[in-house]
Simulated assay, not measured.
Amino acid sequence: MVAYIANTLIFILSGVVIVEGVLGDDSVFHHGTSWTHLLLLYVYVQVSKCIVVGALFPLLRYFGYGLDWKEASILIWSGLRGAVALSLSLSVKRSSGRSLELTPETGTLFIFFTGGIVFLTLIVNGSTTQFVLHYLDMDKLTAAKKRILDFTKYEMLNKTLEDFGELGDDEELGEF
């Protein structure tokens, strides 16, 4: 619960800082070049993930879990980035303006690009992962996993009904 609240706060705070930077500093976001650079950076991040997973695929395949090409494809497409990157970019933004190298404009661009990559990854990759899973035929359960899932649902239902039955004996709740 604490992690969920912390994630939510980081996303809200990052959104406020990004909007304040975009709306408050016209010199940083002139002529749409920042938006073009953001799209190019998104493409670069996707290509980088392909290169890294492709280079490490033999190791991932033969050691540990035993990754196959379909799982590697999902690893490339659905690997989202979020709260950690945003919190680091917030710390860079807060430190900007204290040195010649890290100007306030650089801090604003840093958080803009980080937030933009997080947003694009969540919107583009996150919303299409289901279709990629379906296309790769990875959205089906094996018979064994289906039996385990059905048994788990059956046990959870029985435990819930048993606990509800015990609530009737509770002196504060009484009979319902």
Rank of each mutant, 00 (worst) to 15 (best):
G64D: 09
Y62Q: 12
L75M: 15
A83M: 10
K70W: 11
Y62F: 15
L88F: 12
S89E: 06
D68N: 13
Y62L: 13
L67A: 04
A83R: 05
S91W: 05
G66K: 05
L67I: 13
Y65R: 15
S87K: 01
I74N: 08
L90K: 06
G64A: 00
D68K: 02
K70N: 10
Y62M: 13
S73L: 15
G79D: 01
L80A: 05
G82S: 01
Y65D: 12
W77Q: 05
L67F: 06
K93E: 08
R61P: 07
S78I: 06
S78P: 09
W69I: 11
E71R: 10
G66A: 03
W77R: 12
I76W: 07
S73I: 15
G79R: 00
K93Y: 14
L75T: 12
R61E: 05
I74L: 13
L80R: 06
S87D: 01
S89K: 04
V92W: 13
E71H: 10
S73F: 15
I76F: 03
Y62S: 14
S87R: 00
S89F: 09
L86Y: 01
G66Q: 07
V84M: 12
G82H: 01
V84I: 14
Y65I: 12
V92P: 14
G64S: 00
L75H: 09
S73G: 15
L86T: 01
L67N: 02
G64L: 02
L90N: 11
S78W: 04
S89G: 11
R61T: 11
L60Y: 03
L67P: 07
V92Y: 13
L88W: 15
F63G: 03
L60G: 09
A83G: 04
